[in-house]
């Protein structure tokens, strides 16, 4: 299993566009975003809280990169015919699936840590005064990192259903953002249809928002876990039953 995981991470590292591309995009976004904030605040002294708080905004970029990586990992081997050679080499379908999923999580974590590292350097370079609440910041950062991992895994699951990598990436991005739209639609419809009241709480985007805001934590965590279990279960069914 560890060799399969190491191999998957190696494949991510050797994809220049994905590995260096996501690193560069995240770094540039962090620098540009912070520069804009600096200008907006009229060169006011930095607060460490502001810098860490900025990570929540940055996490959208990390999330998109992770969704792209997840959908590529989910679809590549099946779309390009390499899956059959991995199976012929003795790897089982379930081990391959688990190794791919773990690789998505590791990638998401490493990218988040890289962004934190960049922001950390900026925070040290521009020491501010007061307003830094360690517990709040750590919670927000943790939920942002978990959110990237969760959406990466959902994209990975979606990717297993596509026979074309480009379409899998596009579909994953569209579906992840469509979830937000569906959630808004449900909120709107629930004002018209009483039986739909609260239906938006079943959406993973709503659950992640709630976790970020420290609201409805238990039920939101359950919703996230159910979404993950269902999507990864469907991916496993797809991979285990498919002919190669």
């Amino acid at each position: 299993m560890m060799r399969l995981l190491a191999s998957d991470l190696q494949k991510i590292r050797r994809r220049r566009g994905l590995f260096w591309g996501s690193g560069i995009v995240c770094t540039l976004t962090a620098l540009v975003g912070l520069a804009i904030r600096l200008l907006e605040h009229n060169n006011a002294p930095w607060s460490v809280h502001n810098v860490w708080g900025f990570f929540s905004n940055m996490s959208l970029v990390v999330l998109i990169c992770t969704v792209i990586a997840g959908s590529i990992l989910g679809s590549w081997d099946q779309a390009r015919g390499t899956q059959r050679y991995l199976l012929m080499g003795g790897a089982t379908r379930s081990k391959l699936l688990v190794a791919h999923a773990l690789a998505v999580i590791v990638y998401s974590l490493l990218l988040s840590l890289w962004v934190l590292f960049i922001l950390g350097i900026i925070a040290i370079s521009f020491p501010g005064s007061g307003g830094f609440e360690v517990s709040d910041s750590l919670r927000g950062i943790s939920i942002s990192i978990i959110s990237s991992g969760v959406f990466g895994l959902l994209a990975f699951s979606i990717g297993t259903f596509f026979a074309e990598v480009g379409i899998a990436v596009a579909a994953s991005i569209v579906m992840i953002f469509a979830a937000g739209l569906i959630q808004a639609l449900l909120v709107f419809l629930s004002t018209q249809l009483s039986w739909l009241k609260g239906a938006e709480h079943g959406m993973i985007t709503d659950a992640m928002d709630n976790l970020q805001r420290n609201a409805r934590t238990t039920s939101s965590a359950v919703v996230v876990v159910v979404w993950l279990v269902v999507c990864l279960g469907l991916a496993w069914l797809r991979v285990s039953r498919r002919d190669y």
Partner: peptide, 19 residues
Amino acid sequence: QFYPFLSGRQNLKAFAAGI
């Protein structure tokens, strides 16, 4: 079929991960 972004040697290592 191989991973085009990997070298010949890296490809062999990737496919040997399950052996």
